Amino acid sequence: MNDLSHIGRAAFAPANTADIADAIVAASGLRVDGERRRGRGAGLNPAGRFEPTSRVEIDDGWQSLEDLPPFATEVQVEKPRTAITRNESPDIPFDRSINPYRGCEHGCIYCFARPTHSYMGLSAGLDFEARLFAKPDAPKLLERELAKPGYRPRTIAIGTNTDPYQPIEKEWRIMRQILEVLSKANHPVAIVTKSAMIMRDIDILGELAAKGLARVSLSVTTLDRKLARTMEPRASTPTRRLEAIRALSEAGIPTAVLMAPVIPALNDHEIERVLDAAHAAGAREAGYVVLRLPFEVSPLFRDWLLQNYPDRYRHVMSLVRSMRGGKDYDAEFGKRMKGAGPYAWQISRRFELAVKRLGMTRRIIQLRDDLFVPPNGSGVQLSLL
């Protein structure tokens, strides 16, 4: 491993088609060998932005890089103090959420949650997909929080950061246990996922939905199976996601389709097709989010784009920046989800017209909060008097 902190940008003057950052990536050897990252989304595993040094793998003649093991999924147990995370963001429709896992094996290259791995001293690249954290105590912690005196129920969002139905859920079943706690308490819940595994929990979700306590959004970014496999390597195929929409809808569970993200010149031409297919499967609500590239996500996405769609690189990034004030990303509230400018307006208008034509709605169904019954308080400290 070599420290690259002394290397100047002048040594990597970019060619006509690449940005400086792309030239540095290509010249420094930060890209991980394809065999080691087979089935993963990111091609890089750079140090997080809080780390003092950046290191790369080089073949020094003593051990070949071909002998290094592939990036296998590793799961560590995380012991949080609370299960519910709260926010005051003005442009998202919930003030509390639960994340059963940190990191996500789906490996979506565009995932805006990737930078959160930097807080763990890990990379937003391959580490985010392979070095995961599970929170098996989350259901018990949730029960304690719901039982606290003065707790006021409002819809809990799950799947807003990392997917609760990523592959490791099949073994850990943390999401299933969380739903059981919420069901017993008659607590409203809204779920976002791109996994067909959610069909496993239709029994619980159906009971909640019958009381007006549950809704689900399936993220369908493309109907192109090849693009999906490249962009979201370990997520369910588009066909399976549509099957999940149909199964949930037939079970009486309010189900929406979420096209997130819309990527200019890559999947934006599919807006109408995705909505048509989702509507045919039973979705009656629809929403979208324009591509977001915060912090480490930007170089990861640009490297992926350069490797997989080099002919579209300049066009895609030009349109992305046209919606972000000339930058890769603008985090300003009110703009970060939809973008700004003519191209962002065009996407919005196309979406609105397609939704209107299909008789769908962009209005989020409000869930009930008047049926809440606090748990019995197991594990809650009793008052002295």
Rank of each mutant, 00 (worst) to 15 (best):
26 A>V: 06
86 R>H: 14
147 A>M: 06
144 R>L: 01
344 A>W: 02
257 V>T: 03
60 D>L: 15
376 N>W: 05
163 D>L: 01
317 M>C: 03
311 D>V: 05
231 M>Y: 08
242 L>R: 00
245 I>G: 01
363 R>W: 03
105 E>N: 06
96 R>V: 00
369 D>L: 00
209 A>W: 02
236 S>C: 15
350 R>L: 13
328 D>N: 12
136 P>H: 09
243 E>R: 09
81 R>G: 15
210 A>D: 15
106 H>D: 06
41 G>S: 13
296 E>G: 04
184 K>W: 09
260 A>T: 10
159 G>P: 06
319 L>M: 10
25 V>M: 02
253 I>K: 02
87 N>F: 10
198 I>R: 02
269 H>A: 11
323 M>Y: 09
196 A>N: 15
251 A>T: 08
100 P>W: 07
354 A>W: 04
176 R>T: 13
340 A>D: 15
361 T>A: 10
335 K>Y: 14
121 G>P: 07
271 I>W: 01
4 L>N: 10
312 R>T: 03
174 I>E: 05
336 R>D: 10
217 S>H: 12
6 H>M: 10
91 D>F: 03
312 R>P: 03
48 G>S: 09
333 F>R: 08
108 C>R: 07
151 Y>S: 05
2 N>T: 13
39 G>L: 09
371 L>R: 13
125 G>T: 06
350 R>Q: 14
198 I>T: 00
159 G>I: 01
357 R>N: 11
17 T>F: 06
299 P>T: 00
111 C>D: 07
2 N>C: 11
325 G>D: 03
291 L>C: 08
104 C>R: 02
341 G>Q: 11
142 L>S: 06
246 R>K: 14
344 A>E: 11
278 A>P: 01
285 E>Q: 15
81 R>K: 15
60 D>N: 06
251 A>L: 09
280 A>E: 11
36 R>Y: 03
182 L>I: 13
288 Y>R: 03
59 D>W: 02
232 E>N: 05
190 A>Q: 07
228 A>P: 04
377 G>N: 05
328 D>T: 02
206 G>Y: 04
345 W>Q: 15
251 A>W: 09
358 L>D: 09
153 P>H: 11
246 R>S: 13
284 R>V: 06
105 E>D: 10
287 G>S: 14
186 N>W: 07
34 G>M: 07
114 R>Q: 10
78 E>Y: 04
59 D>I: 07
228 A>K: 01
24 I>K: 14
230 T>Y: 15
296 E>H: 12
27 A>G: 12
69 P>V: 04
119 Y>D: 10
305 L>P: 11
214 A>L: 09
218 L>T: 01
383 S>A: 14
